[in-house]
Computed example of a mutant assay.
Amino acid sequence: MPHVLYVRFHPAPGEDVYQGLLALLGELTPVVEALPPDAALADVRGALRYFGRDAAGLAEIVRVRALARYGVDCTVGVAANPLLARMAVYEAQESGAPASRGGRSGGRSGGGSGGGSGHAAGSVRTVPGDPDAVAAFLARKPPIALPGVGPATARTLSAYGLDSAARIAAAPLSTLQRILGATTARRVHAWARGIDPAPVTPNAPARAMGAEHRFRHDELDPVRRRRALLTLADGLGVRLRTSGQVAAAISVTVRYADRSTTTRSRTLTEPTAHTPALTAAAYALHDALGLQRARVRSVALRVEGLMGAELASHQLTFDPADEKSRRLEAAADRARARFGISAVRPAGFLDVA
């Protein structure tokens, strides 16, 4: 019986709203796994009898409450395990059309392993629990549609004629082991048959802050993208310093015109709230993408691994330029505290859309 919900919120909520949405899920079940910044898993097996509804009915409750309380819609996949629930959401996002409760639609033709495709209007998609229905749902899915199968593995499988979940499931395990290796072959073979033993693991989201800049038009100019990252880094730096925190890691997410996304992250040399350090890391992550003429819809910056500033150490450099930069930053913070956040801004500041 379907009992796992994979919930994808859209538009992506801010940190405070995301925490509220997790608490909303916690009203239905204590078994909630946070998948920041915009998704979560919930095992509602223990809540079905209490609420007198099936899992799809609970998913509709989640949608209504998220919209009513936070103005955030969501697409919910309902299935017997996290793998199938995720795939139901990916299918809904690519089809672009809401599904009726319990509905099931045909194959999808693109990435399902990671950071995202476009989203449809909120909907609930259910994969029935009986084996024949699961086999029908998976049959025409390409390898890349299986969460956990990356582009390289998908290309390798397709090169051997294993270009659908049905063909992978029908292939002898020994054949897959020669192609992929023993461990990967066992996982992929199970996924192609809709088997996912991984449980929903209750957790707390990593302490983080994030911000996004949405361009008014699809942006081709890398200079404007860097200006947007500068603006985001400056805002996050102020928030960190105001709250007395530093960040240990940073990530950049780029959303394209087709609504697909790419995310890159790195651990900082040392935990910091220093805007130039955050900006330099953001620039490096952006430049490493090699976007060239990519049409970019938005860029987002997220700092993670937050801790109290008093717990972090700073490596002295004896660099007068670094010392001067930090003194200027402290003076700018004092001006902001007295005259408002817009009193001091970077020269390349972009108004956040």
Rank of each mutant, 00 (worst) to 15 (best):
A321D: 11
D132E: 12
P172M: 11
T242R: 14
L157R: 10
A92G: 15
S260I: 00
G115R: 12
V252R: 08
T242A: 14
L162S: 03
N203K: 00
V72W: 04
D333S: 09
R295V: 00
G181Y: 06
Q177E: 15
L176D: 06
A154Y: 03
I179G: 02
D43T: 11
R53V: 05
P82E: 02
E91P: 00
R193Y: 01
A80W: 04
A284V: 02
A12Y: 00
A88S: 09
L176E: 08
H119Y: 10
L173T: 08
G148W: 11
T183I: 12
H274K: 01
E27I: 01
D322Q: 15
G71K: 02
R255Q: 14
H10C: 06
N203M: 05
L83D: 04
D319A: 10
E212A: 12
V64D: 13
L232Q: 09
P172W: 04
L350K: 07
A88R: 04
R295G: 07
A99H: 07
L21Y: 05
H10E: 14
G71A: 06
Y50R: 14
G129Y: 10
A204D: 07
G77H: 05
Y18W: 05
L58V: 01
F215R: 11
G161M: 03
P37F: 10
G210D: 10
E323V: 10
A208D: 05
R86L: 03
T263G: 06
R239M: 09
N81A: 08
G129Q: 03
H274C: 08
L328V: 09
T263M: 07
Y283G: 02
S298C: 02
Q177V: 12
T126Y: 04
T272F: 01
G110R: 12
R264Y: 09
A321E: 15
L5T: 07
D319M: 07
M87Y: 10
A330P: 00
G103I: 00
R255M: 08
P30V: 06
A228H: 12
V223D: 13
P205S: 07
S109R: 15
G161D: 07
S313R: 13
G161Y: 06
A206S: 13
R327Y: 01
D258R: 13
A228I: 09
R207T: 10
D38V: 03
R226N: 00
L35H: 09
L328Y: 08
V238P: 01
L328R: 13
